[in-house]
Every structure is written in structure tokens, then in C-alpha cells.
Amino acid sequence: MNNLEKRLNKELEDKEFQQLYEEERLKLEIANILFDLREKEGLNQTQFAKKVKKSRSSIIRMERGITEPSISMLEDIATALGKKLEIKFVDK
């Protein structure tokens, strides 16, 4: 385990930090999913934005994890790409 991992594990003992960390982790996970989806479609950000009828700036913010897309926005993206949005609850 490197120093960063050790420090993170220590910080995660704090409940407030743990909550903030989880919120950011989820944003980044969604960002990565959207980025991967766009890449698999073979589209740049402008093309992707046009296809899903969203602004390029909103796509950029979502892919960077700056903004968290709403469920309705994710549904719109899925529909525009001929996909189905699926959300799951899993054990920790």
C-alpha cells in the first residue's frame, strides 16, 4: 500500500470525509461511464451532444465530473443512443 492509499484509508475513518468521498466517487464513476459510452459510439463531444440533444458544455461538465446528470438526463441520453438506462443497488 502506497502513502496515498494509507492516507485515504486514514481519512475514510472520518464519517464526514467518507460521505464526501462517496459523493465524488459516484460523480467520477458516472463521468467515466459517459466518456466510455461516447467513445464506444465513435463520437467526439460535439457529435455526441448533438445526437443526445444536449449542449457540448453540459457533456464536457458531465464527463469531467463537474456536474452530476439527473436521472432524466441519463434516460434522455440512453434513449437517443438506442439504449436502456439501468440503475442497481448492490451490497457494499
Rank of each mutant, 00 (worst) to 15 (best):
S57A: 12
G65L: 11
D76G: 13
K10M: 06
Q47M: 02
E75W: 00
K83L: 14
I71E: 13
I33E: 10
Q19C: 05
Q45Y: 09
E68C: 15
F35L: 15
G82C: 12
S55C: 05
E75Y: 03
S72F: 13
E23C: 06
F48Q: 06
R38A: 06
A31R: 04
K84A: 09
N44R: 06
I87A: 14
G42A: 05
L28E: 03
R61Q: 10
S72M: 15
P69D: 15
I66N: 03
K10D: 02
Q45V: 06
E16M: 03
D36G: 05
F48A: 01
K84P: 12
E11C: 07
T79I: 14
T46S: 14
K40D: 00
A31M: 09
L81I: 05
D76Y: 08
I60R: 03
R56Q: 13
F17G: 01
E39F: 10
R64H: 10
G82A: 11
E86V: 15
E29S: 13
Q18L: 12
K10R: 03
N32W: 03
I66L: 11
E29H: 09
Q45F: 08
E68L: 11
E23T: 08
E41G: 10
E24P: 13
T46Y: 08
R61E: 09
S57L: 07
G82E: 05
D76V: 11
K83N: 06
L85I: 13
E63H: 07
E41D: 07
S72Y: 09
